[in-house]
Simulated assay, not measured.
Amino acid sequence: MTADLIAVVLLLAVTAYACAGGADYGAGFWDLTAGGARRGRRARWLVDHAMAPVWEVNNVWLIFVLVLMWTGFPVLFQAVFSAMWVPLALAVVGMVLRGAGFAFRKPSRRPAGRRLYGAVFAVASVVTPFFLGAAAGGVASGRVTPGTEASAHAWSGPTSLVFGLGAVTTSAFLGAVFLTGDARRFDAPDLVGHFRRRALGGLGVLAVLAVVTAFVLHDDSPYVWHGLTHGPGLFLVAVAVVSAVATGALLLRASPGVWVRVAAVGAVGSSVLAWGTAQRPYLLPTSLTVADAAGAPATLTWLAIVTLVALLLVVPAVVLLYWLDTHGELEELTDAELRGGGSTGARDDGGPAAGGDG
């Protein structure tokens, strides 16, 4: 019973990272595709201002996932990281480079340095979710079993490919939805339209990719396919479809509100939950069940207690952080404000007051 509870918490943590971290990676995707220095200046300005207050906290969910895996399900941890250390290592390198690029590009004084750091941040924002998705696809396909040796076969199959592309596309979709709201909050109507169109485009690509994924899963991962087309898995798929349609409808409104973010997160979160539910009772379809992968009973009991305490401390703090960010309470001070004079609207960082979208 305790093992099942920890497995549910693990799935919820993966879902939280897919949604929160996905929006983060998506912002980096649109930074990459914003265009040249002049044309993409305002879009990149919005990415910087939208991400800066919360970008690091999203990795809390990834750390939580890793702790639950190696403590609660050591056999799962060993199997996954032994068989797929290559894509996971590439994803970690991407995270490090992404963080460094984001941290160094704004204070860099030389244009060449800003371009270099910006390119590192943007490219890593695409590479990282792809390899994380490819690893998840390797799990869903059943290619990873206890004792599987590291090889490209474990993570380069059709399911891994569509999961990797799905992770990038989902991130781009979430990032565009969140940036649409941030553009509205920063009173930048041109950027609202800019990212609204990209969110709708991302939603369309996701719809096509979902159909392709269904065909791939039918042939390459029959166990997960059966779980997605029956019982709770089918219900969650239906929730994801309804949420996606609602997201599209809300994006078409003249002024998308906060509910468009809720609908987008609902679509992505339901999809991840559907995948996890479709695998039950397996953590590695058809080779490793939750019961077989679980650690010692005493370890699981203490892990459940520590997890409860952590959630009671962390979740309210994260919710407060997101609330403060969405209500504009975490904006950086401008040079004029630091000097004790000048208007807050007269920005020197290329913000909305700087004019049109060159």
Rank of each mutant, 00 (worst) to 15 (best):
T2F: 11
I6H: 00
L10N: 02
L12M: 08
T15L: 09
D24T: 12
G28L: 05
W30G: 01
G36I: 07
A37Y: 03
R39N: 09
R41T: 05
A43M: 08
A43I: 07
R44S: 01
W45Y: 11
H49S: 10
W55L: 08
E56K: 14
V60F: 14
V60R: 07
L62C: 06
I63H: 06
F64Q: 06
V65Y: 03
W70S: 06
T71W: 04
P74V: 12
Q78Y: 07
F81D: 01
F81Y: 13
A83F: 02
M84I: 04
V86G: 01
A89H: 06
L90Q: 10
V93A: 13
L97M: 15
R98L: 05
R98W: 01
F102P: 06
F102K: 00
R115E: 13
A124T: 08
A124V: 02
A135G: 12
V139P: 11
G142V: 00
R143N: 09
T145P: 03
E149R: 13
A152N: 08
H153M: 13
S156R: 08
P158N: 08
T159A: 12
S160T: 04
F163W: 10
G164N: 01
G164W: 01
L165Q: 04
G166L: 07
T170G: 15
S171Q: 02
F173H: 11
L174P: 02
G175C: 06
G175I: 11
A176E: 02
V177K: 10
F178E: 09
F178H: 11
T180M: 03
R185H: 12
R185M: 11
G193V: 11
H194I: 06
F195M: 07
F195P: 05
R198M: 06
L200M: 10
G202V: 04
V205Q: 01
V205G: 05
L206R: 15
A207S: 09
A207C: 08
T213W: 00
T213C: 05
V216M: 09
L217S: 03
S221C: 12
S221Y: 02
G227M: 04
H230R: 15
P232F: 06
P232G: 07
V237G: 05
A238L: 09
A238N: 05
A244Q: 03
G248L: 01
G248Y: 00
A249H: 13
A249M: 13
L251F: 00
L252E: 08
R253V: 12
W259K: 12
V262S: 09
A264I: 06
G266D: 13
A267F: 02
S270V: 08
L273A: 04
P281E: 12
P285C: 02
P285F: 01
A298Q: 12
L300Y: 02
L300H: 04
L300E: 02
T301C: 07
W302R: 14
W302Y: 14
T307A: 13
A310D: 09
L313R: 07
V315Y: 09
P316S: 00
D325G: 08
L330E: 11
D335Q: 14
E337Y: 05
G340C: 10
G342L: 09
T344P: 14
T344W: 09
G345H: 12
R347W: 07
D349W: 11
G350D: 02
G351V: 00
A354I: 00
D357R: 15
G358Y: 10
